[in-house]
Every structure is written in C-alpha cells, then in structure tokens.
Amino acid sequence: MSHDTAESLHTDDSLRWEKLKNRLFLGLCISASLFGVVALVLLLADVVYESVAGIVEFDISIVHFLTQGARRDPEDAGFMAAIAASVWLMILTTLMAFFIGVSSAVYLEEYAPDTRITRLIEANLANLAGVPSVVYGLLVLAAIVNGIGTGSILLAGAIALALLIVPIIIVATQESLRAVPDGLRHGSFATGATRWQTIRGVVLPAAMPGIFTGTILALARAIGETAPIIMVGILFTARTPPGPFDTFSAMPSQIYIWAAQPQPHFHHLAALGIVVLLAFMLSMNAAAVFLRNRYETDL
C-alpha cells in the first residue's frame, strides 16, 4: 500500500481525495465564520420573541416603556431613567476618554522618540486593553466611591468606563495616525509648518474619520458594559433620570435586576430593555461604518 508521494498525486483516486479535502476545509472555514452569525441570530430571535411575548401577553406599552421610569410594579415600570443614565454615562465617558486617548496617541505616534520608555508605555497600553472590565470597576469602587467618598454616583461609573475604553481609543488613534502617509507630513514640513501646525492642519484631519470610528466602537462597547457599573453600585429601581452626581442604574444594570426578579412580567421588560440597548449599540456601530465609508474615499 505504500505509495510514494509524487506517484500518489498523479493517481485519480488521490486527486479526488485531495479535492475532497479542499472542499472539506472550505466547508470548515465557512461553518466557522457562520458560527458567530448563527449565535447572533439566535440571540436576536430569542430577545425579540421574549419582547413580543411581553407586549402581547402582558400588554406592555412601548411608549410607556420608553417615557417612564422604573417602578416596583411591573405594569407601571419603564426604562426611561435607565436610558437617561446610559446617555449621561456616554457623554461623560466621551469627554474624559476621547481627549486623553487622542492626546496619548498623538504623543506616542508623532512626538515620542523610539526609546525603551516609549516601548514600555506602548506595551502597558496593550496590557491595559486586555484587563477585564470588572477590575476597572473595583478600582473605581476602592479609589473613588469609597476612597474619595463620592458614593455610587454616575460620574464614578463614567470614570470606570472611561478607564476601560481609553486604551482602545489610543490603539485605534495610533492605527489611524500610522495610516496617514509620511509624504503628507513631509509636504507640510517643507512649507515651513511646525510640528504642531502639521499635526493640527494635516495629520489629525486626515486621521479623524478613523479616530471617530474607533471612538464610537469603543463607546458602543462601553454602553453595554455591566460589570464595572455593578461594582460602582446600582439603584435597585431607576425611577427618575439621574444627574452626574446622583446614584443611578444604567441600561445593562436595570436589565440585570429585572432578569433576577421572580415575576415573569419583569423578564419580558428585561427583554424589551435588551432590544433598546441593542438598538443603541447597532446604531452606534452603523454610525461608525458610515463615517468610515464616507471619509475613506476623501483621503
């Protein structure tokens, strides 16, 4: 039975086998790539089914759900206060994370010499991006909520989320800055522009679409984060829209609490809450894709 390789390649049998292997491998790759899509479709189908069942069986009014705060009675409960808390979190997180992230990336890409210290900073940023989100929650709980004694306020939650996404924004910004051709910088320098003028007038405008895309994707991740928010502390029932210095329950934590209640009515509210949260995340992702496509050609 022992063929030598060259010979076996030329027999019909082996050729068929080789082609079969090729097709099997292709099939394997396709099913691997479909795996994620199928999981997403199943998740969406389950959540939509639960929400529709809630609307039909328990007579949940969508308008009421979107305009009222949460209550102890599931019939009266709405999601508005949690949505408001999440919007506040996004605004404050963006304010903190965007400027820190972009400034760090500009420094690392445009100014910093390639020294051991710079490489150490970059390696640590890569590590930070891999830290589990609950750790940021614990950090903020210890340092700010209990350390400074702010209590479980919304601003503390925003700080936890900002810490979480700063490394992501830095990496995305670095990528965008690297994608700006050096020719543009040299051209700018050749006209006598300073480094600051070059960065402000040439590099950043060219890199901005990429930076925005990265930031929006990072925020889309932050809005769904539950662990750091729960660590910082959450309201059992988010009744009224909070300000930055109030205790709060954002969308993910209110969903978490509803899902843990005994009454099935609350579980359907949680499903509807997930739909709203997913709508936020998908529109943020869509905005990121739109920005990328829109400005890709202009560069």
């Binding site: 102890r72 059992f236 205790t247």
Partner: peptide, 19 residues
C-alpha cells in the same frame, strides 16, 4: 424598595436609594 417608592410618592423631596 417598595416602601421607599411609596414614601417617595408621598414626599417627593425625599429619595430612597436601594443598592
């Protein structure tokens, strides 16, 4: 939380934060 909610309905200036 139920006690707090009823209390807040009665006295809107008070807030009972249950965590």
């Amino acid at each position: 939380d139920r006690a707090g909610e009823t209390f807040m309905d009665e006295y809107p200036d008070a807030s009972v934060d249950v965590d």
